[in-house]
Amino acid sequence: MDLLRVDDQLTDEERLVRDTARRYAADRIEPHVADWFEEGVFPAAELAPELGELGFLGMHLSGYGCPGAGAVAYGVACRELEAADSGLRSFVSVQGSLAMSAIHKYGSEEQKQEWLPRMAAGRAIGCFGLTEPDHGSDPANMRTHAKREGSDWILNGSKMWITNGSIADVAVVWARTDDGVRGFLVPRGTPGFTTRDVHKKLSLRASVTSELSLDDVRLPEDATLPGVRGLRGPLGCLSEARYGIIWGAIGAGRSCYETAVEYARTREQFGRPIGGFQLTQEKLAWMEVALGQAGLVALHIGRLKEAGKVTPQQVSFGKLANVRAALDIARQARSVLGANGVTLEYPVIRHMTNLESVLTYEGTQEVHTLVLGEAITGLSAYR
């Protein structure tokens, strides 16, 4: 149903990634994900090695057991995984684009050798601690801090809404120091480092979301990421994760659209399929238009990224536009399904509630709007 045939622009390698991810999602995830969502669980211990074997963890990174795939191939994988569930794509994004990317970009050779091969294989899981309970969109005012004590560092503070937090073998934690914001690798089991899962979520239920607490956590000097100081470190990683969302949101939207089309063809009212009514066809037509536009945006930004020409503002454009498009599609699809649209028998309500989180994390809709506003006017509206 891709009227623009956007995927015709993919290379043979990118199509292979697409087909591999689509088969994995269909065979391994889709039969079970509604139950995981309802139960509020994500079987990371089972799935991580499988995702690693398929090359989906840190797939856009090179060396240390990472596949070194192109940006578009990585994006296509995110699209197909999120077509199954946003929680699955979130796991892959946090592992590869945040935790592994931080170590790959800013870590020492010893840190890379210690963590990246295991994380690429899914034998070790990472998380990324930047957001705090009182400072989400304003990380410059984070309260988590690290102070020198002899040759060691002492960390205190807390992080909130951390995907993979309680299951991570290593947390990449960002903290204020007298020398600017620094990154620290905090292994599971470090004294003073504890996690607590967030429960009663109505979105991203098939995903682990945690609070990290650091109470006089003592770390050696070699736990710091030596390659960066300041907020450009975590923000550079966030740009990588946002790029994956540009593609992933299309997968969630496509799943809702395909469900609505099939339902409209088979559901009968007033003696004929509801797909034959003008109002239903209008909804489906606008869904098709939105998906085509989102696909073109993702592909264009992906090619810019591969050419080394992409800007953070372009990534904000894609994240803002494509997530909003996917959420609009989900809501329209829910209306096509009527009352059936609110049950987990169909994926639409699950995608719709998940996309409410995707709209917020990795930069809220409002923040990306202001990024574009500053790019347009040259005037910052943040303060």
Rank of each mutant, 00 (worst) to 15 (best):
A48R: 11
A48G: 10
A48Y: 09
A48D: 12
P49L: 06
P49S: 07
P49Y: 01
E50V: 12
E50W: 12
L51Y: 11
L54E: 02
L54H: 13
L57A: 03
G58F: 04
G58T: 10
M59T: 10
L61I: 09
S62Q: 13
S62R: 14
G63T: 15
G63M: 12
Y64Q: 09
Y64L: 08
C66D: 13
C66L: 14
C66W: 13
P67N: 07
G68Q: 10
A69D: 11
G70N: 04
V72A: 09
A73M: 10
A73P: 13
G75P: 01
G75N: 00
V76L: 12
V76E: 04
C78V: 08
R79E: 15
R79N: 09
L81N: 06
L81D: 02
L81P: 04
L81A: 08
A83K: 05
A83I: 00
A83R: 13
A84Y: 03
A84S: 03
A84H: 07
D85V: 01
G87Q: 02
G87L: 07
L88W: 06
L88R: 04
L88G: 01
R89A: 13
S90W: 08
V92T: 07
S93F: 12
S93W: 09
V94W: 04
Q95K: 08
Q95F: 14
G96R: 05
S97Q: 15
S97W: 15
S97F: 15
S97R: 14
S97G: 01
S97E: 15
L98D: 12
A99N: 02
S101C: 12
A102T: 03
A102V: 02
A102D: 00
I103V: 14
I103M: 06
H104E: 07
H104R: 11
Y106E: 13
Y106G: 03
G107C: 02
G107N: 05
S108F: 01
E109C: 03
E110W: 05
Q111N: 05
Q113W: 03
Q113N: 13
Q113V: 06
W115C: 03
W115M: 01
P117E: 00
P117W: 00
M119P: 05
M119L: 01
A120Y: 01
G122Q: 06
G122I: 09
R123S: 11
R123V: 00
R123L: 08
A124V: 03
I125R: 08
I125L: 14
I125N: 00
C127M: 02
G129R: 00
E132A: 08
H135K: 15
G136F: 11
S137E: 14
D138E: 14
P139N: 09
A140W: 14
R143C: 06
R143N: 09
R143Q: 09
T144G: 12
H145T: 14
A146K: 05
A146W: 02
K147D: 12
K147G: 08
R148G: 10
E149D: 14
E149Y: 04
G150C: 13
W153R: 07
I154W: 10
L155S: 06
L155R: 01
N156S: 10
G157E: 02
K159D: 11
K159A: 10
K159N: 10
